[in-house]
Structure formats: C-alpha cells, structure tokens
C-alpha cells in the first residue's frame, strides 16, 4: 500500500538522483523554492544547437520534489529549447506515475517550473500563463 506512493522508481531517483551537482559552465540557470514546504532546487542547463545537451540540478526537499527533478533531467535531454519550454506539467506527473494531492503536485512541478524560468529567461521570453498556478513558488 505504502509502495503505491513511494514506489521503487521514485525512491531510486530520490536516493540516487541523476545529473545531480552543479555545472561548471551553463547557458541557462534558475532557482526555485516552494516556501510552503521548504523544497528548493537550482537548475542549470547546457545548450547545443538550440537543444538541451545537459540539465543538472542541486537542491533539497521532499522525495517527490527531488525525484521529479531528477526524472526531469533525463526527460528533457535532447529536447529543443522550444519543446522543453512548452513541456506541460502533466509530462512530469506522468513520469512520477503516483497519486498526488494538489499540495504535492506543487512539489512535483517545482523542478519543471524552475527549468522553464531558466529557459525563458535565457531566451528573453515571458513565462507561459499556465505557470501562474504555481505563483506560491519563488523563482530567482
């Protein structure tokens, strides 16, 4: 029953996060915080030919926030900037594949929101309106 929520894949990403640790040089960067629960991630992206060559992150917080960001680093590798910047939040929820309450959805999309802030900021484009629903979060 417990493992419905904290199933193996999620715990594996939480305990062994992929692409974790800072990049020496990056083309886009942002920090996201969820002050409600203290989750925090810093996302860094290296671009090549308009595509994501590498995304790395650091941070701390609950298992859902950290595992989701770890999964995201694999999900977006090779996507064009436009594709990644337009990725819907459902993409990461599908990746997590666990039932989440509305409050925990915010944990799940923290990494994706931060990635979008980084990409849109680097491109000089405004953040899409659908991210208005995560305005409790602090982007910097």
């Amino acid at each position: 029953m417990m493992d419905d929520l904290y199933r193996e894949n999620l715990m594996d990403h939480y305990q062994h996060p992929r692409n974790h640790g800072p990049l020496a040089e990056c083309d886009a960067e942002a920090e996201g915080q969820n002050p409600l629960c203290g989750d925090q991630v810093v996302v860094q992206v290296k671009l090549a030919d308009g595509a994501i060559e590498e995304m790395r992150f650091t941070g701390h917080g609950c298992a859902v926030s950290q595992a989701a960001t770890s999964m995201l680093t694999e999900l977006v590798q090779g996507l064009t900037v436009a594709e990644a910047a337009a990725l819907p939040s459902q993409a990461i929820l599908d990746e997590l594949a666990i039932p989440l309450s509305a409050m925990r959805v915010k944990c799940a999309v923290l990494g994706l929101g931060t990635l979008k802030v980084a990409l849109h900021r680097a491109a000089g484009t405004p953040l899409p309106a659908e991210w208005g629903d995560t305005d409790e979060m602090i982007w910097s």
Partner: peptide
C-alpha cells in the same frame, strides 16, 4: 526525511499530522 514525506506516509496509516512551518515561518 522531509516532513512532507513523513506526513504523507503516516497518512497511509490514517495518522493525521501536520507537516510544514505551521504558520510560524
């Protein structure tokens, strides 16, 4: 372990506890 993970797992045991800053940031 992050308090939200603790509260979420306790919820599966029907144990209701609060996790967070409790309006005292």
């Amino acid at each position: 372990v992050h308090p939200h993970d603790i509260a979420e797992i306790l919820d599966r045991h029907a144990v209701c506890v609060r996790a967070g800053h409790h309006c005292t940031q």
